[in-house]
């Protein structure tokens, strides 16, 4: 069997990643950029969980009489990825607060954004 069942999930997760990328690249407001990063993280996490999908499977908690379980590894990986995403978001918000206290605005300078 191929990924046919999962195709809508892939489209959704890739759409989230693309929306996040667009937000990161086009927005100037720090909070909007942080939100975009969050959207991107969500897209990636959906993709990883989808990688562990087994048709007809159930949650991998042993109850004795169910034969098919989902792949547990992606779930474990996503748990880690979510916590890491939370940490990065929290730190980014702290940086945003610091930036606001120093400059009185949450908008990045024009030159500050895309100065390569």
């Amino acid at each position: 069997m191929t990924y046919e069942l999962l195709q809508p999930v892939f489209v959704i997760s890739m759409a989230l990643i693309a929306i996040g990328l667009y937000g990161v690249m086009s927005k100037k407001n720090i909070l909007k950029i942080i939100l975009s990063i969050g959207i991107m993280d969500t897209g990636v996490n959906i993709l990883i969980v989808a990688m562990g999908y087994i048709p007809g499977g159930t949650a991998p908690i042993e109850n004795g009489n169910y034969p098919v379980y989902m792949d547990p590894v992606p779930q474990a990986l996503v748990l880690t990825a979510i916590v890491i995403g939370v940490s990065v978001t929290a730190l980014a918000l702290a940086v945003a607060m610091g930036y606001y206290r120093k400059t009185g605005t949450l908008e990045l300078d024009d030159e500050g954004v895309m100065k390569w």
Partner: peptide
């Protein structure tokens, strides 16, 4: 900048979606 960002993200979307939908990884 918004146009460039839109072009880049749409390209990424198309490439990634195509790649994952056609991928033959075992389910």
């Amino acid at each position: 900048r918004k146009i460039v960002a839109a072009i880049i993200s749409i390209t990424v979307f198309v490439i990634l979606t195509y790649f994952f939908i056609t991928s033959s990884a075992p389910i």
